[in-house]
Design a protein around this nucleic acid. Structure first.
Length: 828
DNA sequence: GAGCACTGC
């Protein structure tokens, strides 16, 4: 079996590529879309549960009667433009109240990931009105506008399911220090719980509330400020509500409620391990189980149990609220109760068999709040399909022909390739539809899509049109698509898996979990009763894993372990993990940190490691930064430029679709490319971009460079310069002279971080890694790809497995340099 | 000459 086939078998017969090609051919050959679709329509008819019209009939002769309900659809989006709430808040509340239509803000595309520039602007806009008080005073939360807004919002708050539980929640937190709150979608927990708590006697300081995503943190802060009739952000010292996300800290001295991203709270924990500035920490969206949330929960468990033992320095004990949408209450209660139990045990017995005492369990409060969600009818495929792109296509048209407007369709697919394939098919077949039919508008949605294209899903639907949103996982949690009544779920998603034995990550399409399937299904019932079509059988559903494997079990842990070590958790093997990662993964991460020089012989963290932990990059990149600051290299400014380019998520040199354009791009980029490799190419690109003072956007267009990526690079560069100055690695934030870069020094530093990512040239022209003797190919996106004269050795900063092992972001190095670094790392 | 889901400091 070839590697490729092996992968496919692994993915559960994922043969879409072949199928798509076939579809394209058919289209070319036949020309008549309707005819083609009928050929393979057998499967879909079985979807019909009530003797409804099979798709082939629908498509071959569309009687106008089959479109019975489509009354001239008033463009629904206009009809709802009256009242409402900020979309991001809706997004958090997960599910509109039946009595409240979605509002005008809903059309604003803010719940798609914003770029940092935009995010900085938003709070200012929100503040501009109250600031303009007649007497021009530096306004306060007493502004009439704010008060009016607050009073307007109060009835809506009272209508939330969680409102009636306010007293119960307060009471339980008076009794105990930990509360596990399960709130279904639409319960209002994220906005209300901090407000319920802020007037409590024990609440003398700030309440922190964490969110997995930046947009959520900012928009929730804005919403809660409105509800409280307060300003928000750092602009006014009077603001009671603030937020803190990367690149944007907007918390003032009087901030009572502070929304922050999980990563930000972890960074704060490094500086203030006892969390002295907080009276309570609310951890929201725990069910998403990000690595960061698992770390936070572990730290908090240690903190509450230590304080429970009476060793805390606080006047009031820290209160912890853990909020989750799904009901793994038992697990969370046991987790915290176990911590209280361990306080009573001798240290050596901790981590032993986990029988949790009832006394400890009684000290953890629980609370359940129902949500608001419309019923969703679920239909399964009667038998499995190998080609769910085609199945999805049929279902889309079946819905379109059978179901009245309004009601958009949301299709969950695995990735960009499938989305684009299906988009084309939908457009092709839609073009062949009867003219009397309402139109279909296919809209792709994935993170790599440019902002503007993403925002199209929020634009009003044109007259007599049904939107079909073709989305990745992004629509499962991060983006709420309005207007959806039908969900089509392919049952798969791409999952990142870390292979600790090889030290590389791979991305494979795998079956989703039951909880993810339910989450997807729920997307159909947010505005009205909906329907969900699963492109797999009911039996398949039963065999799915109960829940998605937490990220901490599938990723490289070196960064997490460094954070733990830097926060004083030395014995990471006995850290209270909600799910304990495999021992090999932990061991591998410890070895890596040791090789990077962040740990002492005995495994304790050293000064270097503490510095590395405070830098917002992976330990490897942090090590390179620290190395570059050494006087013998003295190239930190240049290295920061390169690291900024390496750590931005979207690629600077984007891919170009057409052959002809590609040639022009290569030509335009030629003066940026460096023969030393990709890292020096990044350096030149960043520096030339930074030097461009007049029109950076035009510069990017001229050089076929992504402007969005470069803006992000500049943000990271600025932050790294600041932090390196604070850590005394850098004497001034701006480089003093602009001498030409010292390539050898820079590559030596990169080598120090990426020792294990090195390969030597073999006689047959291939590369094999020094450590594992594994064959790697230079990725075609590298400037080093296809060189006639090959370097004797390479270092690469990405190692990717798809159908073979690829080295991405590659630089040429000399054999003896690698030897020198290896001697330092693994002394013989 | 390949192809990358989604977050976050």
């Amino acid at each position: 079996m070839s590697k490729k086939q092996n992968e496919e078998a692994h993915n559960g017969g994922d043969t879409q590529n072949a199928e798509i090609t076939r579809g394209k051919k058919r289209k070319r050959k036949g020309g008549d879309a309707g005819v083609d679709l009928r050929k393979g329509a057998g499967k879909v008819t079985k979807f019909d549960d009530g003797g409804k019209q099979p798709i082939e009939e629908v498509l071959s002769a569309v009687p106008t009667t089959s479109t019975k309900t489509p009354k001239p659809t008033e463009p629904k989006s206009f009809s709802r433009v009256e009242e409402g709430e900020a979309p991001e808040v809706e997004q958090r509340l997960k599910g509109p109240r039946p009595d409240q239509p979605r509002g005008k803000y809903e059309k604003r595309p803010e719940n798609v990931r914003d770029d940092p520039e935009q995010q900085r602007e938003q709070p200012k806009k929100a503040l501009s009105r109250p600031r303009k008080t007649p007497n021009g005073e530096q306004t306060t939360h007493r502004s009439p506008y704010l008060i009016k807004k607050r009073d307007e919002l109060l009835p809506k708050r009272k209508a939330l399911p969680i409102w009636s539980q306010a007293d119960a929640i307060r009471q339980r937190l008076r009794e105990n220090n930990v509360l596990v709150l399960t709130g279904e979608t639409g319960s209002g927990k994220s906005t209300q719980v901090p407000q319920f708590l802020q007037s409590e006697d024990w609440c003398t300081k700030t309440i922190a509330i964490t969110q997995p995503r930046r947009v959520a943190a900012i928009s929730l802060a804005r919403r809660v400020a409105e509800e409280m009739g307060s300003l928000f952000g750092a602009q006014s010292p009077a603001a009671k509500v603030g937020y803190s996300v990367r690149f944007d800290n907007a918390a003032g001295p009087n901030t009572k409620i502070k929304f922050l991203t999980e990563g930000m709270l972890l960074q704060e924990m490094l500086r203030d391990p006892d969390m002295k500035q907080y009276s309570a920490v609310v951890v929201d969206e725990v069910h998403e189980r990000s690595v960061n949330v698992d770390l936070i929960l572990g730290f908090l468990r240690n903190l509450v149990s230590r304080i429970g033992r009476g060793k805390g320095v606080r006047k009031h004990p820290l209160k912890v609220v853990v909020m989750s949408a799904t009901a793994d209450v038992e697990g969370l209660v046991n987790f915290f109760a176990e911590g209280l139990d361990e306080d009573l045990k001798a240290p050596e017995t901790s981590g032993g068999p986990t029988t949790v005492s009832q006394a400890a369990r009684d000290r953890i409060s629980t609370c359940f709040v129902e949500g608001r969600q419309f019923p969703v009818k679920t239909t399964y495929l009667p038998e499995p399909t190998l080609d769910w792109v085609e199945s999805a296509l049929k279902i889309i048209f079946q819905i379109h022909y059978k179901e009245p407007l309004p009601g958009d369709v949301l299709v969950f697919l695995t990735g960009q390739d499938k989305i684009e394939a299906l988009e084309k098919l939908v457009n092709d077949y839609a073009a062949a539809m009867d003219k009397d039919m309402p139109k279909l508008l296919a809209l792709p949605l994935f993170a790599a899509l440019p902002q503007q294209a993403q925002q199209r899903i929020f634009q009003p639907t044109p007259y007599r049109t049904r939107k079909v949103i073709l989305a990745t996982n992004i629509a499962e949690t991060s983006v709420t698509v309005p207007g959806v009544r039908f969900v089509v779920d392919c049952g798969k998603s791409k999952i990142k898996q870390y292979r600790s034995n090889l030290g590389l990550e791979s991305l494979l399409a795998k079956p989703i979990s039951k909880s993810a399937a339910i989450q997807r299904q729920g997307r159909a019932g947010r505005e009205a009763p909906g329907q969900c079509y699963r492109l797999y059988t009911e039996n398949d559903f039963k065999t799915l894993e109960e829940r998605t494997m937490p990220e901490i079990l599938r990723c490289d842990l070196s960064q997490s372990l460094l954070t733990m070590k830097a926060r004083g958790v030395n014995d990471v093997l006995h850290f209270p993990f909600l799910d304990r990662p495999p021992r090999e993964t932990l061991g591998k991460a410890l070895m890596q940190l040791f090789h990077l020089g962040a740990l002492n012989e005995d495994g304790t963290v050293n000064d270097l490691g503490i510095k590395m932990a405070k830098l917002p990059v992976t330990p490897t990149l942090a090590r390179i930064i620290v190395e570059a600051a050494k006087p013998e290299h003295d190239c930190l400014h240049d290295v920061i430029d390169i690291i900024s380019a390496l750590s931005t998520e979207d690629s600077i040199f984007f891919n170009i679709a057409t052959e002809e354009k590609r040639e022009r791009a290569e030509e335009a980029r030629r003066n940026l490319y460096r023969r030393e490799g990709d890292h020096m190419t990044f350096l030149v690109t960043v520096q030339q971009y930074a030097e461009e003072q007049t029109d950076r956007k035009a510069w990017c267009e001229r050089h076929f460079v992504s402007h969005r990526a470069m803006q992000s690079v500049m943000n990271i560069r600025k932050q790294l310069r600041q932090q390196c100055t604070q850590l005394k690695l850098l004497s001034s934030e701006a480089p003093t002279s602009s001498s030409s870069p010292n390539t050898d020094a820079i590559l030596a530093c990169i080598l120090r971080g990426f020792v294990s990512n090195t390969a030597r040239l073999c006689p047959d022209g291939s590369y094999k890694t020094f450590f594992h003797n594994q064959l790697v190919a230079v990725h075609p996106s590298s400037v080093m790809h296809g060189r006639k004269i090959k370097a004797e050795a390479i270092v690469f900063s990405e190692f990717l497995f798809t159908n073979k092992s690829y080295a991405k972001k590659v630089s040429a190095v000399q054999m003896n340099w690698v030897g020198d670094v290896m001697k330092e790392v693994v002394p013989m």
